[in-house]
Write a protein that binds this DNA or RNA. Structure first.
Lengths: 347, 347
DNA sequence: CTGAAAGCGCTTACAG
DNA sequence: CTGAAAGCGCTTACAG
């Protein structure tokens, strides 16, 4: 591969001039610039990334720490990753994907060795062992997901509490008085997935406030267990008129379960899910849902990270905890409950 | 961060001695080695990756070029990626994940700048524009997926032709004489996904040879279209007794379709799928299937790649095209067809 | 506007 | 067994 020395020789200038002509960091005569660019083009010159990193202390690489848990829904994970890699690329960064089981150790490795300019953490746990390491690192870090302690990092997440309240409010306003909430499996919570109980607790609290009975249960993450659970729930609470689904697998299983029971949505049961539009499309889910916006969250985390990487001023700004407001996307799967529904059908 | 100079000073030796003590590349007195290791430990020394790459021309990073197409099933993609990242890590490599739309350009960028020691290409097309660039690169490359021209690279794939034949043979031996094969959507083929017609053509050929009627159709990749298509197919070919499914979305949709039609598997219809065990588990698919082994393929590609990276001798070996033999995992979803089924049920 | 030189942090022949 | 030095390929203050 051609080096900057080759380019300089070809253009008949010094290496520093070649470098400046290429970077534009100081004025270069039009004639010389032309010769350097032509030489670089002719030799197909590409700077050596290691050498540049050594000289500038910048790698133009971001670390992405993610785990692919088999009990979390893969398509959602892919969207977060896509959001991160796409935005990083737009901003001129490549992405080092790290899926090590020991995330703390891996994080230390990539930051201490200066392989990356910044780090995005996914699959955040309430008490995440990677956070102390990230705080001690010299590179900035951002998380997708809300940890217990947000100090020293930028945090991005869906406002799950607001999502829980919005779901309850929506059905309460329509006249529902008894609802079921099916959450992620309990072991997701045990692993530290705070988003599960954030939505759940807020929904329970809001339900209490407005006199709605809310049966909140943890779900399963796989077929057929999750389908069986849905049947059981609908059997157990026959007077419940609305179903809130904070569990992708349950949402995906619901159409067949409804079909098997001859249950019409929304006539017999109002349904609101919480997942991404992409997920809804993949499974053609016919339910209104709170958009979880994985691509947007990944993108936001990267943008903030890159700001801190590239600007000393930005690096001194206070850390942020930014929530995306839940957006309820209507698919017509909610309606007033049977009991209070007007004689004339709503149009 | 501490440098090797800091470690050397702390240990009271030269930088070269510190380096050798750490790498073990030449004999060091026990006493000195101890001091150096202690100093490195005390200073939490981690070599600077850029400096090391510059000095050794090795980055210990592999490139992984993958696309997340919305019409390909995300969970399968995740397994390939996991296979690659896990194996890379086991062998001491990190993974640069590149999802650029313009894969050829991205590939040139990461190879020319020497960010990676080798590259794994996924989502291989019959005439893949990345391959000429990979062949011209100085780093070795491997693909998961069979391109039209395999020269200059190592290729790993499931033997889709053998899979097609195995599916037909299996049902033919049981006495079936009319089968349906539902493949991936046609636009996957148009994008260059040769594996679709490799399985299809081989199945058709084998069917012809053994006098089996095979209705081969391209499928859909999304609900509810794929479900509707399954209904249509079963309506159109009422005398078909077996269904071959080379389409993940169709496989996932089949249980509800069968339920809706009151169709029993295998009593009324024998079924064989082609997907991974992990996929089968996620959707609890009750069908016998040809294991597509995504994690194993990703792992094999990385192993071969690393061999070539680390050994000049291995780098001179002839390039390989390695097929995984399809393994038919029985889940009891096939049986002799109604017409010819013996009175006494098979045990 | 341009060049010669130092320096980033490693590794590894070369000398002893 | 150990050290002084060169070199990997960049960038960027320093000088002119």
């Amino acid at each position: 591969m051609a080096t900057i020395g080759d380019v300089a020789r070809e253009a008949g200038v010094s290496r520093s001039t070649a470098s400046y002509a290429l970077s534009g960091k100081r004025p270069i005569s039009e004639e010389v610039r032309r010769r350097v660019l032509a030489a670089a083009e002719a030799l197909a010159y590409t700077p050596n990334a290691g050498a540049r990193a050594l000289a500038t202390s910048r790698t133009k690489v971001l670390g992405l720490l993610a785990r692919f848990y088999t009990d979390e829904f893969a398509p959602a994970m892919m969207q977060y990753i896509q959001g991160v890699t796409d935005t990083a690329r737009d901003l001129g960064y490549d992405t080092l994907l790290v899926t090590d089981e020991d995330g703390a150790r891996a994080l230390r490795r990539i930051t201490d060795s200066r392989m990356v300019d910044g780090v995005v953490l996914m699959n955040i746990a309430q008490d995440d062992p990677r956070l102390p390491i990230l705080r001690a690192a010299s590179q900035p870090g951002a998380t997708v997901g809300l940890p217990g302690d947000c100090s020293g990092i930028d945090v991005f997440d869906l406002d799950f509490e607001e999502a829980g309240r919005a779901m309850v409010d929506h059905l309460h306003r329509l006249g529902h008085r008894e609802l079921i909430l099916i959450s992620q499996p309990e072991h997701v919570v045990e692993r530290g997935g705070a988003y599960v109980w954030r939505l759940r607790d807020a929904a329970l609290e809001r339900a209490r406030q407005c006199g709605v009975t809310l049966h909140a249960v943890y779900g399963e993450s796989r077929q057929p267990a999750v389908g069986r659970l849905l049947h059981t729930l609908l059997d157990t609470y026959p007077s419940a008129t609305g179903l809130l689904v904070n569990n992708e697998a349950a949402a995906a299983a619901l159409p067949s379960v409804a079909h098997e029971r001859g249950l019409r949505v929304p006539e017999d049961l109002s349904v609101i899910g919480r997942y991404s539009a992409e997920f809804a499309a993949a499974f053609s889910l016919p339910y209104s849902f709170v958009e979880s916006a994985p691509d947007r969250l990944g993108s936001m985390a990267v943008r903030q990270l890159v700001r801190r990487v590239e600007s000393a001023a930005a690096r001194r700004e206070p850390f942020v905890v930014r929530f995306i407001s839940p957006e309820l996307v209507s698919r017509g799967s909610t309606t007033p409950p049977r009991a209070t529904r007007p004689r004339t059908p709503a149009r």
